[in-house]
Nucleic acid binder design. Structure first.
Length: 732
DNA sequence: ATGTCGCGGGAC
DNA sequence: TCCCGCGACATA
């Protein structure tokens, strides 16, 4: 079957894939001593030397006399066959050129170089000339480590001494100083430690997952359960089974930088912290993880989506927590959804996938419904918490002034909670101060110069911001249309304006605002969340930032200011997103020590989505949603369309890119996913321009024809490729 | 990505 | 006439 040679003798023709933005691998001659397939090498490219991977036998079709020789084989274990297969399939799936895929897989610094060293200290053989308290503490600290070495700062901190005490002991040979590579294995995790007691349905689900992992085969399970039903404990048992089998596990989290809580739970279950991979980890640590994952020195990685491209030696389980979360979509460079890539990768390495969510994505729901994914549902809620009671507040009967949004019943409910020492959340999913700025002199609404959206006033930032393409400008004093001064008025609510109203309505209460543009660093945000959780605020005014992650034990009331907000407009996924968001936000009041309530202010209490949210009839909702999509010709999974264009007329291509951005709203209405702002969908590759447009459309459908036709209007010479099936299951 | 080549325009 | 800077181009 497999006739690809695994070793190429000196002088043989080999294909080498580099991270240079070419179309694919280039042919080289194997170096002295030959080279293995998958080997990391250094190869000459023009006047430079670049890193690459031996991808296979030479492709030929290039003048043999012009071939150059691979200049060095790097001292890194070769890339495994399955990793190459994964990168190729994932690249084909997402229409991403292979070099860009390789870049994802080599996101660690100084790959080829030998590991840097640092000094470490352990117990030596000598005896101290004098016994002092400080010296005794150093010895005790080292004895406690049972032969494991410590760094100078770790040791002096543990012993509570200055570094000179340690240095003094080193001179006498009491403490041994050694050089040790920084790339050290992670502490062993012990899957045999006892788990938390599990409720009956948790125990059953855990057993199913343990058996699935034990099978050593591919399979995907959708693990569904409301907030607080104990999904984490259940999938940690799958992780335990995987580790016990000697295989590696990966847990993907959407907001990893904010997930200190999760790491603590892992430590409680397995006795040590796992490796942590996200954009915030240091270069040294990235390198360590990359190497340890490859050599088996890391059993469990907890990470962001890019952790999927680490060189696992034997990956047995991938958990995608909050699988519906949109941050699994990578929208720059390579375009992919980590949820789908997890399924693909697992199928290649005979691993299990657990997709965990309280509100699964329509795609996963459809795959479970079709029998492609196993489904496990957790119903009982663990501990004392109960599902928050959910009620609608019919706003048609409320007589609110035009610049106020908190209804009387909601304000009264919030007041009662605060008086009890509990917390209330006022939720409005709109960043900034006001969504519309209108000129009272001429009626002009300030729009974005680069796309079809309106500019949103952000008073905190003192700017107008486009939420579609990211364009910002200072807040103008005069109307850009009629030049009249002082007539620009803010219309409609944003979270900043809601906070203003809350401060006026509840002058005694401590009010915290949680919106992403108020915090410049994740650290700041993390600190604010922690302080709120400890009771540092009475009222939280927030955007969807509060829907995720952290648990607020004092929060017993969730008030949704405008539950209909997401249902306006004609976004194809509006219903799905609103349903998920409302259930998630309401769940924030379900984790408190006392039973909570969620109040949804709405003008359409009879809207089917609002009714589904209130009744909790998820199955019914998904079925209706799937039917509706089918009727619209837009199935949960569609096709990815890639358009590769020749640049006969460069300006036209850029016009297309700008048109894509300008018409992003219109495209979304027909079900297209437009990734990135203005020229982002365009990549220039060797004189040709590549535009990628992701469309969920079945082959041969009217939608697909419409997009092709639309692109055709630009009269570009190029081929429209509508090829790749986007359901990861269709790959195997 | 990035080094090289070739060309146009400005300074001398 | 020289040289700088920019864009196009090729990389095996």
């Amino acid at each position: 079957m497999n006739d690809t040679p695994s070793h190429f003798p000196e002088g043989a023709r080999v294909a080498v894939l580099t991270t240079q933005p070419l179309d694919g691998p280039l042919d080289y001659l194997a170096p002295e001593g030959g080279v293995m397939i998958g080997a990391f090498v250094e190869a000459p490219l023009g006047p430079r030397k670049v890193m690459g991977v031996v991808w296979g036998p030479g492709l030929g079709g290039f003048d043999a006399s012009k071939l150059r020789r691979v200049s060095a084989v790097l001292d890194v274990p070769p890339m495994r066959d399955e990793m190459r297969a994964f990168l190729e399939k994932a690249g084909a799936y997402t229409l991403t050129p292979l070099p860009a895929m390789l870049r994802l897989a080599t996101r660690a610094p100084a790959l080829g170089q030998p590991p840097s060293k640092r000094k470490v200290y352990r117990r030596g053989t000598g005896r101290p000339d004098r016994e002092t308290g400080a010296r005794a503490r150093v010895m005790a600290a080292l004895d406690e480590m049972g032969g494991l070495a410590l760094t100078l700062s770790e040791l002096s901190q543990m012993a509570g001494v200055t570094s000179s005490v340690v240095k003094g002991l080193v001179k006498q040979g009491v403490v041994a100083e050694e050089e040790s590579p920084r790339d050290t294995p992670y502490p062993r995790l012990d899957p045999a430690l006892p788990s938390k007691p599990l409720a009956e349905d948790q125990a059953e689900a855990a057993e199913v997952l343990r058996n699935a992992v034990a099978s050593g085969r591919y399979g995907t399970t959708l693990l569904k359960g409301v907030t607080g039903s104990g999904k984490t404990e259940v999938y940690l048992e799958a992780v335990a089974a995987c580790l016990a089998k000697g295989r590696q596990a990966l847990v993907l989290l959407p907001e990893i930088a904010l997930s200190a809580e999760f790491l603590t739970r892992v430590e409680a279950r397995f006795g040590a912290k796992p490796a942590e991979w996200h954009s915030g980890v240091t270069q040294t640590e990235r390198r360590r993880i990359w190497h340890m994952v490859g050599s088996g020195g890391a059993q469990l990685v907890v990470g962001a989506r890019s952790a999927l491209f680490l060189p696992f030696q034997d990956l047995g389980l991938v958990v995608v927590d909050e699988e519906h979360d949109s941050s699994y979509k990578q929208e720059e460079g390579a375009l992919y959804n980590a949820r789908d890539m997890a399924v693909l990768r697992a199928s290649i390495t005979d691993a299990q996938v657990v997709l965990a969510s309280a509100t699964p994505s329509l795609e996963s729901w459809a795959n479970a419904e079709a029998g492609k994914y196993r489904r496990l549902t957790l119903t009982s809620r663990f501990g004392t918490a109960a599902l928050p009671e959910m009620k609608s507040l019919d706003m048609r009967g409320e007589d609110l002034p035009a610049d106020r949004w908190i209804s009387e019943p909601l304000a009264a409910a919030a007041r009662r909670r605060i008086e009890n020492g509990e917390q209330a959340l006022l939720f409005l999913n709109r960043r900034g101060y006001a969504p519309v700025t209108i000129c009272r002199a001429c009626g002009h609404q300030i729009g974005c110069k680069h796309c079809d959206a309106r500019m949103v006033e952000h008073r905190f930032l003192k700017r107008l911001v486009c939420h579609q393409c990211g364009e910002t400008e200072p807040r103008p004093e005069v109307c850009p249309s009629c030049d009249v001064e002082g007539k620009l008025a803010a219309v409609g609510p944003g979270v900043e304006r809601l906070a203003e109203e809350a401060r006026a309505r509840f002058p005694e209460a401590r009010i915290a605002v949680l919106s992403s543009d108020m915090y410049t660093t994740a650290r700041q945000l993390k600190a604010e969340i922690a302080s709120i959780a400890e009771g540092g605020a009475d009222i939280i005014v927030g955007t969807q930032l509060v829907a995720k992650g952290h648990n607020f034990p004092l929060l017993t009331l969730v008030g949704v200011i405008d539950a209909d907000l997401g249902l306006q407009g004609s976004d194809l996924r509006a219903a799905e997103r609103t349903f998920q968001l409302m259930r998630q936000v309401a769940g924030r009041a379900g984790r408190a020590e006392k039973p909570g309530v969620a109040l949804l202010q709405t003008y359409q209490p009879d809207h089917p989505v609002i009714r589904a949210i209130l009744s909790g009839d998820e199955e019914g909702f998904w079925r209706a949603e799937a039917r509706e999509r089918e009727a619209a010709g837009v199935p949960p999974y569609g096709r990815m369309a890639g358009i590769i264009l020749s640049s006969e007329d460069v300006q036209k291509v850029f016009d297309l890119g700008n048109a894509l951005a300008r018409n992003a709203g219109a495209l979304r209405r027909i079900g297209a996913d437009v990734y990135g702002p203005a020229p982002a969908p365009i990549a220039r590759v060797r004189g040709r321009h590549r535009v990628r447009l992701l469309v969920k459309a079945p082959k041969g459908s009217a939608l697909q024809a419409a997009v092709a036709d639309w692109v055709g209007q630009f009269r570009l010479k190029g081929d429209l490729r509508l090829a790749v099936d986007i359901d990861p299951q269709s790959f195997f």
